[in-house]
Design a protein around this nucleic acid. Sequence first.
DNA 1: AGGTTGACCTGGACGC
DNA 2: TGCGTCCAGGTCAACC
Length: 270
Amino acid sequence: MPELPEVETVANGVHERVHGRRIQHVTLGTKPEPLKSPAALIEETLTGARIDRVHRVGKTIVFDLLQEEKPAQFTVHLGMTGRLLVSKAEVEVPPHTHAILALDDEREIRFVDPRRFGRLAVIAPETTYAGTGREPLTIDLEDFIALFKGRKTPIKAALLNQSLLHGVGNIYADESLFRAGIRPKRQAGRLTRAELARLHTALKDVLKHAIQLGGSSVSDYVDADGVRGFFQLEHKVYMRTGQPCLVCKTPIKKITVGGRSTHFCTVCQK
DNA sequence: AGGTTGACCTGGACGC
DNA sequence: TGCGTCCAGGTCAACC
């Protein structure tokens, strides 16, 4: 489901609602896939901890905790269909709920994920989760250009590579390439400086704009209150196969790049 | 090592 | 109505 803007929206929403609260009790589901750390370690780390801050690193939601005065971190990756909801305990628990963190004020943080691609983990003590790559919103132009130097893979695949930039997914890769006028299959290492400068700007702009609109709700994405985002109304190519390009009217084409569906304009993108 | 592909899951949309 | 097929916002392991 979620890419950087959606994860940022969820993390900020959860932070506003629960920071300062204490986790009284943890209930984990029986399916093994969502747990990247041992269940006992997750329970031990979370139970009794105070939630200091909830924020985003890449596509990962990070809980900064204080457990008996000591800092600890708990991470949630939403995968494709994960949700993190803050609900009153009396509200019925939805299907596919894999974790419930009961707070000290009759509310619960619930992790719901039908496809079970999401992951919950505890970060090793004394370490801080740094993500897998560079932050697209803050990387400067020279570092951005250096990421792609010598790479033979298509620029679309490079944008999706979380060890280079983290947080960019299929929607915002397609949308930023359209706005930069670059074909998704172009070899990353053969893009000109000027093209990479356009991409650097386009990517930041599209991510920031999407954050302002609460992310994209393509099918089931909702924020911590169950509210949908609005950036899907701003998509210029993603899921617009066959529809006229909003700039030149040419039908948007759909191809596969790096195993992912990819949407672009054959005229506007060179 | 960098690059590519398929596997992991469920559910919704669509065609017959 | 029902069944089969395809597709989906993301990683990873396993291969070249």
